[in-house]
Design a protein around this nucleic acid. Structure first.
Lengths: 140, 140
DNA sequence: GTTCCTGCAAAAGCTTTGCAGAAGA
DNA sequence: TCTTCTGCAAAGCTTTTGCAGGAAC
């Protein structure tokens, strides 16, 4: 599951980001955990492995990753920014009961073509909310 | 443009929200300004008419409105929560240059049907970002 | 009189900024 | 050496909470 050091380092070099120890560990975490973590979650998890890690560095790192297209920023709720290593077109579903965020396929092509003539679209996000199957099962 | 007092009061009563002076003014502002304002903008604008208005009341009021489906909450960016009086299905486009948020038509039906079997969807949002025609024109 | 509403002040939570020391080329 | 990176501390913002006074019915 966890990507090799070489894979991660290469990915960073490809983007022109110097592969520091902290950056490698953060990217390694993201590439191994498709749970759309918040900055806080990333900090807590990577901090276990890199005790000197600071939140400032996590924010700096995530900022670099987002700028270079390595991660996608998810603002599905107002009180939390999440980060997704999967940058391919897809939608996000947040369960309002358990808080988990799921991916689902979305055909972004043609979405909003009508009504956006003359606009230069750079970023497309589809966010759904509701209750996931697991939480629906518990309620019944 | 601005709705009448009766219209606004009736809308509140319909939702079971007591039509206090502050609530009426906030709703009146929303119904007359389709600019997807932030809580801060709403506070500043309505404060001109109601000098005693507090931000706490604005947040309380918007919370009630959102709960009863009178407004839609927009989280297109992490650092700002916006409110939309238009609760019909439509997408939002944010211009990263001037910051304006535009509406555009989106066919939500069928969007994500595949891959969300077993999920109970309550809320659907489509957020696009990029540059609006006006800002594209300035650049050229 | 009882309930709900308002608004000040303070607190909370997340993110950014300033800056000095450390690491790396 | 020179540049870049890291991390502590502090500040900045938006939003929430506690609570006392006030309005409404």
């Amino acid at each position: 599951m966890r990507p090799t050091l070489d894979q991660v380092t290469e990915e960073l070099n490809k983007r022109g980001i110097k592969p520091s120890h902290q950056r490698i560990k953060v990217l390694q975490y993201l590439m191994g955990h498709f749970v759309h973590p918040t900055a806080d979650t990333i900090y807590n998890e990577v901090h276990k492995e890199v005790p000197t890690l600071s939140k400032t560095t996590v924010y700096n790192t995530l900022g670099h990753f987002a700028e270079t297209g390595l991660v996608r920023v998810i603002n599905i709720e107002d009180n939390e920014t999440r980060y997704d290593i999967n940058v391919h077109d897809h939608g996000h579903f947040k369960c309002l009961v358990c808080g988990a965020v799921y991916d689902f396929p979305v055909d972004m092509d043609g979405l909003g073509e009508t009504g956006l003539a003359g606009f230069a679209v750079q970023d497309r996000n589809v966010y759904f909310k509701g209750t996931c199957p697991a939480c629906l099962g518990i309620q019944n």
